[in-house]
């Protein structure tokens, strides 16, 4: 859970920084998208780096889901008889509470996101357009419901990271003694920065800052 989650968080940080290039203009953003495909050339054939990244991400996602399912199954086996009284949370952690449902929402979101921005299937501009045009068309004011879905999904990502990042520090044995509180705060900062960073572009397109 922790190791695969760490891989995905590192990816998210890179992904967010790439997205923010849209504020530098169409050429910068499209050039960056092109670089992702040609990085390492001519020493490596085209798409080598991108394909390696894709394989690592797919493996990380699959192992992350497998860990989550096996933890849930172990939990079900460990408590065959449920409590009659509704178990009330004493730890007051909404982020913790939504980890499993949130994970499913995020998985569905990733499917939509790939269809929208990578494959262009559900994007008005389609696959042939430049990444910049796809982004601007995808979050056009008339498609506000798409932007709304992105906002909901990203808030879920934020909650997932709020608990997940801290939980990874804990699982890897780092959040002990004096580093416990700072690492817990760091998880909150990482979650907040990623959510704000990712929401900046869709919201900017929707309100017309980026055309």
């Amino acid at each position: 859970m922790a190791v695969t989650g760490a891989v995905l968080v590192l990816f998210l940080i890179g992904h967010m920084l790439g997205n923010l290039k849209i504020f530098l203009g169409a050429d910068s953003f499209n050039g960056y998208a092109e670089w992702l495909r040609t990085a390492g050339e001519p020493a490596l054939p085209g798409r080598t780096m991108l394909t390696i990244t894709e394989i690592v991400l797919v493996v990380a996602v699959v192992l992350h889901m497998w860990s989550a399912v096996s933890l849930a199954r172990r939990a079900a086996r460990a408590r065959p008889v449920k409590y009659a009284a509704r178990r009330r949370s004493q730890a007051s952690g909404y982020a913790t509470h939504v980890m499993r449902y949130g994970g499913i929402v995020i998985a569905l979101f990733v499917v939509w996101h790939l269809l929208d921005m990578t494959l262009g299937v559900v994007n008005p501009e389609g696959h042939a357009a430049t990444p910049y045009d796809r982004m601007v068309a995808g979050f056009a004011p008339s498609r506000w419901w798409v932007t709304a879905f992105y906002v909901i999904a990203l808030v879920m990502v934020g909650l997932h990271l709020r608990h997940g990042v801290w939980s990874a520090f804990q699982t890897l044995g780092l959040a002990r003694g004096r580093s416990h509180r700072p690492l817990r705060a760091l998880a909150g900062v990482v979650a907040l920065v990623l959510v704000v960073g990712f929401l900046a572009a869709p919201v900017a397109v929707m309100i017309g800052v980026i055309k």
Binding site: A75, Q90, T96, G173
Partner: peptide, 28 residues
């Protein structure tokens, strides 16, 4: 026993207030 997902429910009900970072120490 099940696996730990760091929910913190344990330390909240612990009559002796054993802190959650004990689990980080165990993992380390």
């Amino acid at each position: 026993f099940g696996g730990c997902t760091n929910t913190g429910e344990c330390t909240a009900v612990c009559p002796k207030g054993i802190p959650l970072d004990a689990i980080a120490q165990m993992n380390a």
